[in-house]
Design a protein around this nucleic acid. Structure first.
Length: 310
DNA sequence: AAACACTCCAACCGCAGCGTT
DNA sequence: TAACGCTGCGGTTGGAGTGTT
């Protein structure tokens, strides 16, 4: 098989075995999550230090939400923070307890692919329309991301500052962008509405024309989050518009108008949506789930990083 | 039932920043 | 101060699982 030297130089790649995980855990338990390269030099594992670190960070670290799909709130936060920070996944992940940069990155790239598909759908000739699955609004929970800036940057805003959802006053109503009739004509009316909403939102999303959003000081500092300005969301002549986009309201949390934005993300084990086969409608997951837990059950958890500390 | 399309995610790679020598 | 090693980050890829035709 391998000679001695070859054995020393051999670097294992690919999926991790349980024994390797065990060995890595032992090392971390003994020395802490550092000295990754010594794992190989000590002959514990034939993996690079890099590979060991990655495995620890993405899979073995405690309190990870492995196998859980992103909740609607997590999706919102990613969208908002991506708009603010760009593709700084590690930074964004620091706002999402239990999520890694890899998780966020994967989530975002999946979402981008869906958006691209929607765009393509809207541009596909009529003859091909019915060959493409029409995504539901829940597939792409797009919100025009608010532009919140750190206290040290950005322009002062005179608008209300307690809503992390897109705040748009009456003069800044999102303009409706009609879907081509060719799409409407081939869809059942309910689907037409969904596609039209998505298309509208996507048009806004890709538009270079910035809609002014308020700064979100609570999100920057204490990561609090208020729904009190929900009624200021864009007026779109579709009754379920807000319901579709923002199925949660403060009362569902049972904790008043303001609450830590991190709160909904602490989904206890079992509340996760596992696998695509489960097909649990995001909007149907009640956050009153947490009512059953003691108020202080999250106290021991580290608060998410605050942008003001960055 | 098989083939194909699509989604999700684990893991790799290259690069940059930082600390140490 | 340059060289080196380590760590962390973001981009990318490939395989497994699932859905659709």
């Amino acid at each position: 098989m391998h000679g001695k030297k070859e054995q020393e130089e051999y670097i294992r790649k690919g999926p991790w075995k349980a024994e390797e995980d065990e060995m890595l855990l032992k090392h971390v338990k003994k020395y802490g999550p550092r000295d990754w390269s010594s794992i190989r030099s000590k002959g514990l594992l034939q993996r690079t230090g890099k590979s060991c670190r990655l495995r620890w960070v993405n899979k073995l670290r405690p309190n990870l939400k492995n196998g859980c799909k992103f909740s609607l709130e997590e999706e919102r936060v990613v969208i908002e923070l991506q708009a603010q920070f760009g593709n700084r996944w590690a930074k964004i992940a620091s706002y999402l307890p239990g999520r890694t940069d890899n998780d966020v990155k994967n989530f975002w790239s999946s979402r981008q692919k869906r958006l691209a598909r929607i765009l393509q759908t809207s541009a596909t000739p009529k003859s091909q329309k019915n060959k493409t699955r029409v995504p539901s609004l829940h597939d792409v929970p797009i919100l025009q991301p608010p532009k919140f800036s750190s206290p040290s940057e950005g322009e002062p805003s005179s608008k209300p500052q307690s809503c992390s959802l897109p705040y748009i006053d009456n003069s800044e109503v999102i303009k409706m962008v009609s879907l081509p009739d060719l799409i409407k004509s081939e869809l059942p009316s309910s689907d037409t509405i969904h596609v039209e909403q998505e298309f509208t939102l996507f048009e806004n999303y890709k538009s270079t024309e910035q809609i002014a959003f308020p700064q979100i000081p609570e999100l920057q500092n204490g990561l609090t989050f208020s729904m009190e300005n929900q009624d200021l969301l864009p007026t779109i002549d579709e009754p379920c518009f807000i319901e579709e986009l923002c199925p949660l309201d403060a009362s569902e949390f049972g904790i008043g108008p303001q609450h830590p934005i991190g709160f909904p993300f602490f989904q206890p084990p079992g509340s996760c949506r596992l696998g695509t086969g489960d097909a649990i409608d995001n909007s149907k997951i009640s956050d009153s789930f947490f009512d059953d837990f003691p108020v202080d059950m999250f106290d021991h958890m580290d608060p998410p990083a605050s942008p003001s500390n960055l």
